[in-house]
Design a protein around this nucleic acid. Structure first.
Lengths: 334, 334
DNA sequence: CCTGTATATGGAAACGGTTCCATTGAAGTG
DNA sequence: CACTTCAATGGAACCGTTTCCATATACAGG
């Protein structure tokens, strides 16, 4: 069933049918209803390839997810998907390891099909600047800030990671912790973990805390296994820390396990704070004190922003959404 | 840049260029290398819409994920994605709640674009039979068996859920547990949880265990929150159970939290077994005894099966992959 | 040298939409 | 009534591929 058959059945020309389908003006009420009746009866669906070919648009919105382990991203993604679908847009998702070559190749691959827009969830490496150089369509980084990157096509929707991290340090400090370890992310300064790191370090410096990044900070990827290994390494190097701030819940979850395996009771022997506010923190034993990111708000803002960029164009924008420190069971006073 | 420009630049006709790009025979070595050089130099990428339009194929493989909370699915999905990409295929992922209307609509929507094939991850409801009625392209259920459904287009790749569940019961029984509660899934008999339920019930009956489904089984969705609530309800009803078999790790994770909140020590007061072998079970405190599904094998078999169905057609097939009971820390002897 | 077969190539047609231009008829205007 | 304007419509051309058919060239066998 194609548009010419529909036109023949309805007794109109293909042009009129096309106008009806796309809701354009200059169609009589009679033509509209007659054509819609035929469309309905035949279950006709326009061929999206032909449509996109002619419109010279391409594949739908492309999303890239860096790292599969991060529950936060599944939650956000599901919400984004629902929102796009509500307005009849498709989403093509690519899962990636946080690896330079792979990311660059995937972006190139997707962009060759000229998507209307792209979304990026997560990613921590410094290669970002380079991989992003090739981006030509409106794109939104989610949970990663693009504010400092200065690309005209790169918008972002995040929480204020720096402030949130400072708040975590403030919280730990007020509970008497002085020697605080940091866990997770890379040292790519513009990316999510980098911002959290920066906020935390600054807060520690502001209080003249004895913080030495080389000793008290252990970078790692966002997965339970990496969090586990990282805490072991951190404790070997800095056994006198009384609290650990893990820059993500998955990391904190792995670290919690590592602490217990080392015979440390949490929070009695070691306090722990996570980040993201996922189910992991909410249901683990003990419940992990964390910073909740509003996944719904992140999804909503991203979609809204991307749509306005795709439809109307305009400058890249950088939106902040609220966060909230959730005090649970993995921090105690010293 | 389109194929005609490439042809002109290389000094050949469009037919030859097309043959080169698609790796077909009857092209001279000289033509091939000359054309490939031009393609390389211009960064030419075939327009996928035009290609699909002409080939009368449509959108790429469509995947449906029921429920966002299941970590198992993220893992499998990432692996599938990588495998499809390796052979130049795209994957369009739709996340869905496990809700009848939504699922039916999403299938209809995707199928209207005539994908080459479809993949389904999870899903527990009885509506499946009806929603699947409309499926016209080769499709593979992953972790859900389609063997009993009898649809010609519906293949499946799963573990033997019935046997695995029986093995869990066997394990608990051998540790002295007689009153065993079951948690999770719906009572849709053909679906994943249904098969596990059936296997577990049968194993209990085989041993003349005092199992009463109405009392000792509490259905729930695959999320931590649902697992939490479900265990509370189960314990209210059947406080004398000594072990709980949760039909998924997310459920077990939530249930573990619920047990602790009720003041029950796991495993001393209550033993717990999960299912899936995700990071949740591996890192939780205590580590949850579970059945590991080989996500790589599931992904590999699914892709292989789907590809052969898409390329060569043929009968629906039902593949089993191995599983493994992993005894960890949430079961103790009675 | 002629014919037959295999290989290499060019190019038109077709896939199913959208869009633009031409045409028609009706309504509005002086 | 002649002339303009405008809404409604039809249909050809085009988007960028693939594919099929026609043609050209090479080479083998008789």
């Amino acid at each position: 069933m194609n548009i010419r058959e529909v036109a023949a059945k309805a007794g109109y020309g293909v042009g009129t049918v096309s106008r009806v389908i796309n809701g354009q003006a200059n169609v009589s009420e009679q033509a509209r209803s007659r054509i819609l009746a035929v469309v309905e009866a035949c279950g006709y669906e326009p061929n999206s390839n032909a449509r996109y070919l002619k419109r010279r648009e391409h594949t739908p919105v492309a999303a890239f997810v860096m790292g599969t382990s991060n529950r936060l991203f599944s939650d956000i993604l599901a919400s984004i998907q629902a929102r796009l679908e509500a307005s009849g847009e498709e989403l093509v998702v690519t899962y990636l390891d946080d690896d330079a070559q792979e990311v660059a190749a995937a972006i190139a691959y997707q962009q060759a099909r000229r998507p209307k827009g792209m979304l990026f969830l997560g990613g921590e490496r410094t290669y970002f600047r380079e991989a992003f150089d090739q981006i030509e369509v409106p794109s939104v980084l989610i949970t990663n800030s693009a504010a400092g990157l200065g690309f005209a096509n790169l918008s972002s929707v995040t929480i204020d990671n720096e402030a949130a991290a400072a708040e975590v340090i403030d919280y730990l400090w007020s509970r008497g912790h002085r020697r605080i370890g940091l866990l997770g992310g890379s040292n790519a300064p513009e990316q999510t973990a980098g911002m959290r790191l920066k906020g935390a370090e600054q807060a520690l410096r502001d209080r003249n805390a004895p913080f030495d990044a080389a000793r008290d900070y252990e970078p790692c990827r966002f997965s339970e296994q990496d969090g586990y290994t990282a805490l072991i390494r951190l404790l070997d190097r800095a056994p006198d820390i009384t609290a650990v701030f893990a820059l993500g819940d998955v990391i904190a979850f792995g670290a919690l396990r590592a602490a217990v395996d080392r015979g440390l009771a949490v929070p009695r022997d070691l306090s722990l704070v996570g980040f993201d506010g996922t189910a992991l923190a909410q249901f683990s034993i003990p419940r992990i004190t964390t910073v909740r990111q509003d996944t719904e708000a992140l999804a909503q803002q991203s979609v809204e922003l991307l749509r306005s960029l795709m439809d109307a164009g305009g400058e890249a924008a950088h939106t902040l959404v609220p966060y909230e420190l959730i005090a649970q069971e993995t921090v105690c006073a010293r």
